[in-house]
Simulated assay, not measured.
Amino acid sequence: MAISDLKLPEGVTAHTFKSPVILAEGLALRVAEQLNDAITQQGSATLVVSGGRSPVAFFQSLIKHPVDWLKVTISLADERWVPVEHADSNAGLLKKHLLQGPAAKARFIGLYNVAASLEAAAEQADHTLAELPPIDVLILGMGDDGHTASLFPNSPHLLEALNPDDARRCWPMLAPTVPHQRLSMSRSLLASAKHTVLSIQGQAKLNTLSDALGGTDIAALPIRAFLQPTLEIYWCP
């Protein structure tokens, strides 16, 4: 099965690339253009990215493009509730692979904070995200289980976090894999992005996407909440 075989909702577009490297380069070029357009139009730009290892090549390619990073704010769609120095920290990953060279001038708004509990950390992150300007570009990933950001099936608070009318910006979430404790932007905040890209690799994730397109239960496959008009899907085998 290829992505061209999928029946995508009206307004959703898909792009196929031959390899992860070519996908990363194509996505970086697109995002750099969108950031520069936002800076030209409004004087600043906001980029929200997903963590994990998959986006590293994209990060490394993006910082090679000319962008006025001093006018860019960067944040994370989700975070593992571990210190920045921890190997699993998404903020640590960004500092190593994205916030480098000229891109180090960007303003970074992270989700992690020291708190007595995950719930308290999510409340604090919710307050912090009040400082986040409107999102111009959002890059989402997706797991084989259909989660995106850290909106995992069967996680407590999932239905609240997926409520499009809930104004809360960040929710505590539990992942099935270590580290279990996560912080995730809410559906309402993520869906407010001007441009959204879903970047995925491999046949397994394409199969999950196909399943997501074939149903409506967003709690079972949270990615369904984001298969909306204007979404761009970047995929490679």
Results as ranks from 00 to 15, higher is better:
Ala77Arg: 02
Ser188Tyr: 14
Asn154Ile: 05
Asp166Glu: 12
Leu99Ile: 12
Phe152Glu: 01
Gly101Tyr: 02
Val82Gly: 08
Val178Ile: 08
Leu174Met: 08
His157Gln: 13
Pro133His: 14
Leu140Glu: 01
Ser184Cys: 06
Leu76Asp: 02
Leu70Tyr: 15
Pro66Asn: 10
Leu70Asp: 13
Asp145Gly: 01
Val178Lys: 13
Pro83Ile: 09
His180Val: 07
Pro176Tyr: 05
Ala106Asn: 07
Glu79Phe: 06
Ala175Met: 02
Pro179His: 08
Phe152Ile: 02
Lys205Leu: 09
Thr148Ile: 05
Leu132Gly: 01
Glu119Arg: 12
Pro176Thr: 03
His86Phe: 11
Ser155Thr: 10
Met185Arg: 04
Ser117Trp: 15
Arg80Gly: 09
Ala104His: 09
His127Pro: 03
Trp81Lys: 00
Asn207Cys: 06
Ala130Phe: 02
Leu99Met: 15
Ser184His: 03
Ile109Ala: 02
Thr208Trp: 06
Arg107Phe: 01
His127Cys: 14
Ser150Arg: 03
His127Lys: 13
Asp166Ala: 03
Trp81Leu: 14
Leu183Thr: 02
Asp144Pro: 12
Asp144Ser: 14
Gly101Met: 14
Tyr112Trp: 11
Ala120Leu: 05
His157Tyr: 13
Leu198Gln: 11
Leu93Val: 08
Thr148Cys: 11
Gln201Arg: 11
Arg182Leu: 04
Pro156Met: 14
Ser155Tyr: 04
His195Arg: 07
Leu98Lys: 05
Glu119Ala: 10
Glu160His: 14
Glu160Ser: 06
Leu198Pro: 00
Leu162Ser: 06
Cys170Gln: 00
Ala77Asn: 07
Gln181Leu: 04
Lys205Trp: 04
Ala204Glu: 13
Ala121His: 01
Ala91Thr: 10
Leu189Thr: 04
Val72His: 04
Gly202Asp: 09
Leu159Ile: 04
Gly143Phe: 03
Leu76Gly: 00
Lys95Met: 10
Ser89Trp: 00
Leu70Ile: 11
Ile200Lys: 04
Val72Asp: 04
His147Cys: 07
Ile135Met: 10
Gly141Asn: 10
Leu138Tyr: 05
Cys170Gly: 00
Ser186Leu: 13
Leu198Asn: 05
Glu123Val: 14
Ala103Pro: 05
Leu118Gln: 11
Ala161Pro: 03
Asn207Tyr: 10
Ala91Cys: 08
Arg187Gly: 01
Ala130Met: 08
Ser117Glu: 11
Pro172Met: 12
Glu160Phe: 02
Gly202Arg: 01
Ser89Leu: 05
Leu189Ser: 05
Leu94His: 03
Val67Pro: 00
Val137Trp: 00
Ala91Asp: 07
Leu198Ala: 07
Leu70His: 15
Ala77Gln: 05
Pro66Asp: 06
Asp68Arg: 14
Asn113Pro: 04
Gly143Leu: 11
Ser192Arg: 11
Leu158Asp: 05
Gln124Lys: 14
Gly92His: 08
Asn154Tyr: 12
Ile135His: 04
Ala175Ile: 09
Asp68Lys: 15
